[in-house]
Design a protein around this nucleic acid. Sequence first.
DNA 1: CGGGACTCAGATACCTGAGTCCCGGTGCCGTATT
Length: 432
Amino acid sequence: MTTPLLVLQRIFGYSAFRGAQESIIAHLIAGENAFVLMPTGGGKSLCYQIPALMRPGLTLVISPLIALMQDQVDALRRRGVPAAYLNSALDPLHAKQIHDDLLNDRLKLLYVSPERLTQHSFLMLLDQLLARRQLSLFAIDEAHCIAEWGHDFRPEYRQLHVLYQRYPSIPRIALTATADLQTRQEITEQLQLGTGNQFIASFNRPNLHYCVSPKFSPGTQIETFLLRHHTRDSGIIYCQSRRQVENTTFWLHSRGWHSLAYHAGLGTTLRERHQQQFVQEAGIIMVATVAFGMGVDKPDVRFVIHLDSPRSLEGYYQETGRAGRDGEPANALMLFHPNDLITLRLRVQNQSRSPERQAIDSHKLEALALYCQSSECRRRTLLGYFGETHTGYCDTCDNCNPDYRTWSGPEHRNHAVIFAADRFTPGIHRTR
DNA sequence: CGGGACTCAGATACCTGAGTCCCGGTGCCGTATT
């Protein structure tokens, strides 16, 4: 008789479970639903992969990106686990093969996108598996996409309720590393997970150090920060627009920094090349839009700079969370100007979304505004937003420790004074 | 596209008007075309 621990040791090669992994796995094996919130690198995947191997039949994993599916399936196959994905990157012959494998119970895990899942033909296939009692578990990876993308960008993310409506007897697990209270509620409702099945780890990342600096001369500020703290480190600079990415990359390059651009307008080949370079080589600065990050596995990212304000505190946490996954100290610097907020507020107002949705977007944005303009411990504010209490005085943010206020230039104390005294110099502009 | 924000030059010490620039970002899927 095999146990989860034996599977963990024999298949995955770890000696012991971490955090809540063991209880989540036991929960799923017993046929219960689960909502799992765990920081990146906390071992989320194992929470459904081990039950997948211990329960009879197929575990279906809903994943947002083809690249993520490929990474996961490659890793599983290397360990000898029969896993596959079904998506548009696959040629018809292979797709047919997987179809056959599914009907003959030769696969333990199948990865698909929500778009694939909601196709009629695919649901018919699942119906067949259900009828043969070959359907074991549904796992929704990166479940925050339901709230983040489901409302306009990828509407199929709001149709995942088909899982419990059509297959009520099959347990569901949703996993993510970032979700505020609102997002958690949305995921739980959308997938009917039940309120008693929540496994929520701490959001605190003690090795991340936070600073919000008034933005008055972004180029100089970035360079000061890099020269003082990160002359040879890998890091990410987040911008709001593709144009800003281009300009900043060009500018950094002209100043002798090894920088690469990443946004969805660059084309698949170039994006893949840049991402691979960033992961494999040391000391590259990736200048990127929100397109960059998900599924990027690089433990030694030493800094994340926000050149423009993100549109929510949730997004900010997610993006800064890509630094310091190795547990070593890493810095999160935000260059903030109140004008950025004005633009974002207008954008929320002008969105053609329901009043309820606008209220939620607005709430998420105002949480960020509070964070930027607060003189309280950043860590306390950030954790408080996610419903966690922290005593404050973390000593590793600019509000707790004066040393952190000089990251990108002279010490800043009061945003209002600085913005009254200085005229705002807009973003870095390419010289023609 | 209309309109707001910014820059710059010129006339005149703070303001005006013309010109320029900008107007977010994320990916599946399938079908049509080289």
